[in-house]
């Protein structure tokens, strides 16, 4: 239990998807113009992470790892193709399910859902999970069972949401400030994110 809580908190703050690993930057920059849509995308990303990561974990442990299917065969070189297929497939299913059962949520998230398949945060979380599976079990970062992978998925998703919502809030206020012309838009956003990342750097020494 302790391990899961530590994994969860660390993935929100110290191993924040955006500020520590720069994952999911494209949609992070494109959709952070106002808080409401940013929150919607954050929730959608968290949800897709929550569904895909345990599936990818089970695939990695039961099928792709060394000696899983056939003795002496290590299939982990197939992981890129398999993970991305799982992510793309699940995003499609989630999209259809949301459309069927909750049309209001679908119209709120609509355009973002298909884009999540190519969000680096999802693929990145799967690849980091793959690295962490092979880690020493005593390490606080190790993922040793399905519950760990779920905690990591939810933590990463919340961390990503936190980052995009706070950037959106800053950008809403920044609309009123006088930024040098060539720096407007993308340039100043990068510098803002850089300063936010510096602030988040203080969490790296967090020990729990």
């Amino acid at each position: 239990m302790e391990h899961i809580i530590s994994l969860f908190v660390r993935s929100i703050f110290a191993d924040n998807m955006i500020f520590a690993f720069f994952l999911g930057m494209c949609s992070f920059l494109a959709v952070s113009k106002n808080v409401k849509t940013a929150l919607g995308l954050g929730v959608a990303v968290t949800f897709v992470l929550l569904v895909t990561l345990p599936v990818d974990y089970l695939l990695q442990v039961d099928i792709l790892g060394p000696d899983c299917l056939v003795k002496g065969v290590d299939l982990s070189y197939l992981s890129f193709i398999l993970f991305i297929a799982v992510i793309a497939g699940i995003t499609q299913i989630v999209e259809m399910a949301v459309e069927k059962f909750s049309p209001s949520l679908y119209s709120a998230l609509g355009i973002f859902l298909p884009l999540i398949a190519v969000n680096c945060a999802i693929m990145g979380a799967s690849l980091f999970m793959q690295q962490r599976v092979t880690m020493d079990h005593a390490s606080t970062q190790a993922i040793t069972n399905v519950w760990d992978s779920i905690a990591y998925a939810v933590g990463s998703g919340i961390g990503w949401t936190l980052a995009i919502v706070s950037l959106a809030a800053v950008r809403e206020k920044m609309a009123y400030s006088n930024v040098p012309k060539p720096l407007r838009g993308l340039g100043i956003t990068f510098i803002t994110v850089g300063l936010m990342a510096l602030a988040f750097q203080c969490f790296t020494s967090l020990n729990i």
Partner: peptide, 13 residues
Amino acid sequence: PAMALILLGCVIW
């Protein structure tokens, strides 16, 4: 990592 963002912002500028 944070400086990469700030530098890239400057390159774009």
